[in-house]
């Protein structure tokens, strides 16, 4: 449905996107992940035709975005929410959605119905006559999403839809995105991993303008599981502990931080038993011992270093 080939965007000397290619099927929910300034927003802006790429090609439903003949047609297939949900502050929610609806070419007879529809979907029914300038950030984000959905587009593109929200609002928006993902093709960007993990069927990790990973969340998590970490907390650190720990086969690194010991081990063995034994023998008073496998967070940090 969406085909991106060798997309490059330069702002003068700065290379924002560097040869990005990927394909996307109908119904997929892709999370574009990357640190700030990695090129996420640039990629999305090119997809919605707000920016032109320096080189490369994008096709949506087989139509070339670079061809002016198709641009209006492609635009109406897409619903877009830019970063920070920019809205016309002096309008009420209803006025704004009505304006957007008309701009999306919705006929007058259908307009009210469509507005009511998205108001309900986004939980905005009691706010419909409120002026946008006095809405909370969470509600503003919902108005932005409602705006992107009003013409029932097949593709929905959301740039950092959960940034700046409090935890409750974030969960609400996340649920809303999951709901949208059931019936539409969705691309969203985020620099928060858990968001993407919770909502997306596929993750693209971008760093310095390049795609460094493209996989399902589960597979990405497994890919980098070459090591495990064991955290121990002791009452009193004996002098012999560290040299003795280092002798155990499979231990790669031992780090001391106050009364905490962080031990990096290979993945094959669970060494907790051996470690506990040494700490107890040294009379250090074992307080806590936990094993932790590399999670998506570590994969992300590893890939975007």
């Amino acid at each position: 449905m969406i085909k991106v080939e060798n997309l490059t965007k330069k702002y003068g000397e700065l290379i924002a996107l560097d040869g990005v290619s990927f394909e996307m099927q109908e119904g997929e929910v892709i999370g574009v992940l990357g640190p700030n300034g990695a090129g996420k927003t640039t990629l999305l802006r090119i997809l919605v035709m707000f920016l032109e790429p320096t080189s490369g090609k994008v096709e949506i439903d087989g139509l070339d975005l670079g061809n002016p003949l198709y641009q209006q047609e492609i635009k109406s297939k897409i619903g877009y929410l830019p970063e920070n949900a920019p809205l016309y502050e002096d309008m009420t929610v209803w006025e704004y959605l009505s304006f957007v609806g008309k701009m999306q070419g919705i006929k007058k007879d259908n307009l009210n119905e469509k507005i009511l529809n998205v108001l309900k979907k986004c939980g905005l029914e009691d706010k419909q006559n409120t002026e946008i300038s006095i809405l909370s950030k969470g509600y503003r984000q919902r108005v932005g999403i409602a705006q992107a959905l009003i013409h029932d587009p097949r593709i929905v593109i959301l740039d950092e839809p959960t940034t700046g929200l409090d935890p409750n609002q974030r969960i609400e928006i996340r649920d809303l995105i999951k709901e949208i993902g059931k019936s539409k093709t969705v691309i969203l960007s985020s620099h928060v991993l858990s968001e993407v993990q919770a909502t997306c069927s596929r993750i693209l990790i971008i760093n310095r303008g390049k795609i460094v990973a493209d996989d399902t969340p589960e597979r990405l998590e497994n890919k980098n599981r070459s090591q495990a970490m064991i955290n121990a907390e002791v009452d009193e650190l004996g002098t012999n502990i560290v040299p003795r720990l280092k002798l155990i086969e499979g231990i790669r690194e031992v780090e001391i931080n106050g009364n905490r010991i962080t031990i990096t081990t290979t993945l094959e063995f669970d060494l907790r038993k051996d470690i506990a034994k040494i700490i107890v023998e040294e009379n250090s008073g074992l307080l806590e011992l936990t094993r932790q496998q590399a999670n998506l967070e570590d994969v992300f940090i590893e890939l975007t270093k």
Partner: peptide, 8 residues
Amino acid sequence: EVLMTFPV
């Protein structure tokens, strides 16, 4: 950004 990405 919203205005210019409408089909117009």
